[in-house]
């Protein structure tokens, strides 16, 4: 049996990629492209939409249709694509800055609208591209280039936000759990409605170095130790939960997606037209 490599979706001659050694983006991309392959995605009807930052560079490696957008707005661009042409498979790959910091409002409303997009959020806990500054998902008290005495703000729980806002599918993984991450991505891609996969990822260059985890292995161990399968996480006493984050499928529901609902609007509008 041959295993999916995802290489058929990659532009020839682009490797090695530009991300730092130990960065989680390459692993995330590998999992996503393997998921594409296992699901039989075609370049012609797949559109990958990216934002700005380390993760936003991902489209440059792909042979699928792609739209590399402005910072924080990827979901809004993707909404236009999907809303107008529902038969396309639209995948939005963003960092934590794009998705829930500068672009937080679009994230909330894409989930509320339950538009049939798959959002992959690579959460590396800081702004890597600009030199490791604090983001909306940097843990409280963590050190970054702009919180040298520790982060006084609390971090967003991206998955909780998506769940509350109305996403049909919410899951979390880490590159520490490579195979599982790909399987979760497949579920998200297959899901109709807004689906989110948060990939909590190492950034040894900035976040790791700033927080006593300079070695990639140290960061991975830290992530691996904090990640708990959702079933185990739920068993923890409240006080201990703060040291962990749940991974796996957190939300799976089947509310009608935006395009399905809009078909009703069209039916009503044309019905009204018959005077």
């Amino acid at each position: 049996m041959t295993h999916a490599t995802g290489m058929k979706y990659m532009k020839p001659g682009v490797l090695p990629h530009m991300w730092c050694a130990g960065c989680g983006i390459g692993g995330m991309m590998g999992a996503l492209l393997r998921a594409f392959e296992e699901l039989g995605y075609r370049n012609t009807d797949t559109v990958v939409v990216t934002g700005i930052g380390c993760t936003g560079k991902l489209d440059d490696y792909l042979l699928t249709n792609a739209l590399h957008t402005t910072h924080g707005r990827a979901l809004a661009y993707a909404t236009g694509i999907k809303a107008f042409k529902p038969q396309l498979k639209v995948v939005v790959v963003m960092g934590d800055g794009d998705s829930v910091t500068i672009g937080g409002n679009h994230f909330i409303h894409a989930a509320r609208r339950n538009i049939d997009l798959t959002a992959i959020v690579l959460n590396n806990l800081n702004y890597g591209m600009t030199g490791g500054q604090v983001s909306g998902t940097t843990p409280e008290w963590a050190v970054t280039s702009t919180t040298v005495h520790g982060n006084p703000e609390r971090e967003f729980d991206i998955c909780a936000l998506a769940e509350t806002a109305g996403a049909n599918f919410v899951a979390r993984s880490t590159p520490y759990l490579g195979w599982e991450m790909k399987e979760i991505m497949k579920q998200a891609l297959e899901k109709r409605g807004f689906s989110l996969v948060e990939v909590v990822s190492p950034c040894p260059t900035h976040f790791g170095r700033n927080n006593d985890m300079k070695e990639t292995a140290a960061m991975l161990r830290w992530l691996g130790g904090r990640a708990l399968p959702i079933e185990d996480y739920r068993k923890l006493p409240q006080a201990e939960r703060k040291q962990h984050f749940p991974v796996g499928t957190l939300v799976d529901r089947d509310e009608p997606d935006f395009n399905t609902r809009y078909d009703t609007i069209r039916a009503r509008a044309t019905g009204m037209n018959v005077r």
Binding site: A76, Y77, T79, G80, I81, A83, Y262, I265, R266
Partner: peptide
């Protein structure tokens, strides 16, 4: 919607023009 097209009210004007660009690239 009467014409089989779409009106979508976005969350702000940044999103509005973004969605317009996205739809245009999808052929609209």
């Amino acid at each position: 919607p009467e014409l089989g097209g779409m009106y979508i009210q976005m969350e702000d004007e940044m999103a509005s023009i973004a969605a317009v660009v996205g739809a245009s690239l999808a052929g609209a």
